[in-house]
């Protein structure tokens, strides 16, 4: 089982001279596994467009495209590439689509297809030729062909959002986007007129337990791709509740969960290549200085378009 990254950016595509090395496309990940080289795609950000182009060259000549597409959630940066994914226009393509839907919203096909109306796009969902089936997901375990086990876990994001844990022949890859650590939403300042000690305590317990469940979900993984849109300083400066993690949180969480390799992903659109290089150096030093003697420091990298894991 291996993974290729086709989009690593959060929020909005940001092509330009400062994002050449890490890439400007929004999230899309290609996972291949087994002898048959089966295809699973996670999220259809703008990165799915070049993936589609590639599939037409490599896979299509051998036979119809057969893929499973898993959506972490349906925010725009994770679905915007879908109408540009060439295989959706081919009647021979077989696409099984999975994802969570926020309570009381439309069904999954309508939520994703909502962007395909004439006012936004020249082709409607009904005009797509591929054979597509949709499945709304909850916290569950899925068994895909040839022994791929996919476990799902609710993450903390303004809409319902799932992390995926892929297990195949002893290798484990986990996606954790988009995710903000669970936190106590109830007045933590004792002087706040809304402070209620009982509610506060219950909030502390609930947040800690949910975070522990997240750690358990990532536990022992070979690779974890974790939302790390902000630095801790940025996160604390007015970005709480936006549904994203800090790099520091992702790193500490990976260390706690004994993850073998952490890949920081969902880069902020403002983050330049040079900044990412600097941040990488900074965290490498910080991690090394805090790793007890005799232990190997956490292996981590910032996600780059084209990276193979």
């Amino acid at each position: 089982m291996n993974v290729t990254l086709w989009g690593v950016r959060g929020s909005i595509p940001c092509p330009g001279p400062t994002t050449v090395r890490y890439g400007g496309n929004t999230l899309c990940l290609e996972l291949r596994y087994g002898a048959a080289n089966r295809l699973v795609i996670v999220d259809a950000g703008s990165g799915i467009r070049p993936l589609g182009v590639q599939l037409m060259k490599t896979d299509f000549p051998k036979g119809p495209i057969d893929a499973k597409i898993l959506f972490s959630h349906t925010h725009w940066d994770h679905i915007m590439g879908f109408p540009f994914f060439t295989p959706v226009f081919l009647p021979t393509s077989k696409l099984e689509i999975f994802g969570p839907v926020t309570f009381e919203e439309d069904t999954l096909d309508k939520v994703i297809g909502g962007q395909m109306q004439y006012r936004y796009f020249p082709v409607t969902m009904a005009e797509l030729a591929a054979q597509m089936t949709y499945h709304r997901l909850q916290e569950t375990v899925l068994n895909f062909d040839d022994g791929l086990v996919v476990k799902t876990k609710y993450l903390n994001h303004p809409i319902t959002c799932l992390g995926y844990r892929f297990e195949h022949e002893g290798k484990v890859i986990v996606t954790m986007f988009d995710h903000e650590p669970f936190r106590n939403l109830f007045a933590t300042d004792a002087d706040d007129p809304n402070h209620d000690p009982e509610v506060f305590e219950e909030g502390e317990r609930a947040a800690a337990e949910e975070n522990a469940r997240i750690d358990a979900f990532m536990a022992g993984a070979d690779v974890v791709l974790h939302d790390a849109q902000y630095t801790q300083k940025e996160y604390l400066k007015g970005r709480k509740g936006w549904g994203h993690s800090s790099m520091e949180w992702a790193i500490n969480s990976a260390v706690r969960s004994k993850v073998k390799k952490l890949v920081l992903i969902h880069h902020d659109p403002e983050r330049t290549d040079d900044q990412i290089d600097e941040l990488e150096k900074h965290y490498r030093t910080a991690i090394a200085s805090r790793t007890p003697a005799g232990r190997r420091p956490l292996d981590f990298e910032f996600a780059r378009e084209g990276m193979v894991l």
Binding site: T102, F103, E104, Q138, E139, T140, Y154, N156, H157, P158, I159, T160, F182, R183, N184, L185, F186, V199, E202, G203, R205, A206, A207, E210, G241
Partner: peptide, 25 residues
């Protein structure tokens, strides 16, 4: 709908897990 394996009996926890938007809606 959520298919959670453990029962949630506190509203505070429900708000933290489901998020403010869902509960508000």
């Amino acid at each position: 709908y959520y298919g959670l394996t453990q029962e949630v009996t506190s509203l505070v926890r429900a708000i933290i897990m489901l998020g403010l938007n869902t509960v508000k809606n």
